[in-house]
């Protein structure tokens, strides 16, 4: 599927702030399931944007604004081609998960991580164990966990914030896609399945019902789902928020242990201001012809980054992810 994605992030401050520094992870990953045709990040006030790849292979754009400013606007424009995803995993028996080599290879995705710590209480592991005790194959086990998460949480915007623990999530019973993903990862890891967090874009008007999308253009937020490692089959993706499979409408930015490793924006600034944040993702199918320059293009000089800057890095990271 050929998609155009425009992600606009707008921070407005109650008084001038200075020395803002931010890490931005919004550029889709370039790999065998999706190809990035073009990417550019523009910022206002305009400054030099630095690009690099992090440990997990995700592209990081560093945006800093030193001078006093009352608003910061970031716009990421991507054209990406997504390919059909591989077939669902084979009927690997759950016993294969216990293989010491398999576990050693994936130990970073088996241990608790800052946002996925099921060991602070008992309920997450207990519910995961109860839900999966009859599963004989890994796909059954994965399906059981996704169902359990969907039974435990209802989708509710604003019910949670970052830093919510898995225990609090279960007690509250509501959250957004990120919370669905974290709870699913916690349950999977607690029963010995290596699981990781995926940050990305979803071409669907409603992220809780990705299956029956017919729109040509949607206005949404960024999305999060998960991947689990299946012995003999590699990483398999699931979307616990809508219970559906992950396909051509999902565009991956990056995969890591949890949200803390791939936040779309993370930064600090100096000043006691309060801020209003607006963010919007507009996704549409790309027309067959090359698009004309956007009419909104501004004339002042601005920093533009395009494509991966370091030739060898992505390759190395893909190797690590296999």
């Amino acid at each position: 599927m050929k998609l155009d994605i425009r992600y606009r992030m707008h921070f407005r401050y109650s008084e001038p702030v200075r020395e803002s520094q931010n890490e931005v992870r919004v550029r889709p990953r370039d790999d065998e399931t999706q190809r990035v045709v073009s990417f550019r990040l523009t910022n206002e006030p305009p400054t030099k944007v630095l690009s690099a790849f992090d440990y997990w292979g995700t592209a990081v754009e560093q945006v800093g604004v030193r001078i006093a400013h009352t608003a910061l606007e970031l716009t990421a424009e991507t054209s990406v081609d997504t390919l059909p995803r591989p077939a669902p995993p084979p009927d690997t028996p759950v016993e294969a998960l216990a293989d010491p080599d398999f576990r050693a290879r994936h130990f970073e995705f088996l241990d608790p991580s800052p946002h996925v710590d099921w060991q602070t209480g008992d309920s997450v592991a207990a519910r995961a164990a109860a839900a999966t005790h009859s599963a004989r194959s890994v796909p059954d086990l994965l399906a059981a966990v996704v169902a359990e998460v969907r039974g435990a949480l209802r989708y509710e915007s604003g019910a949670t914030d970052i830093g919510v623990s898995l225990e609090e999530l279960l007690a509250g019973g509501a959250g957004v896609c990120q919370d669905f993903a974290h709870l699913a990862i916690g349950m999977l890891r607690s029963v010995g399945v290596p699981a990781r967090y995926v940050s990305g874009y979803l071409f669907a008007a409603d992220e809780t019902a990705a299956g029956d999308e017919t729109a040509e253009m949607v206005s949404v937020q960024t999305h999060a789902w998960i991947e689990a490692a299946v012995p003999g089959a590699g990483w398999c993706a699931f979307d616990p928020t809508n219970g559906g499979t992950v396909g051509e409408r999902h565009v991956v930015i990056g995969c890591a242990r949890d949200y803390g490793d791939v936040p779309p924006v993370r930064g600090v600034f100096m000043g006691g201001a309060t801020a209003e944040v607006e963010a919007e993702v507009v996704i549409g199918k790309r027309p067959a012809v090359e698009p004309a320059p956007s009419p909104g293009a501004r004339s002042w000089p601005r920093a533009v980054t395009q494509g991966p800057p370091l030739g060898s890095r992505p390759q190395q990271h893909q190797q690590q992810q296999q």
Binding site: M9, F11, S199, H223, P263, R266, G267, V277, A279
Partner: peptide, 10 residues
């Protein structure tokens, strides 16, 4: 102060 964006919400 720190600022961030999270998926699903602004």
């Amino acid at each position: 102060r720190s600022q961030y964006l999270r998926p699903g919400e602004a």
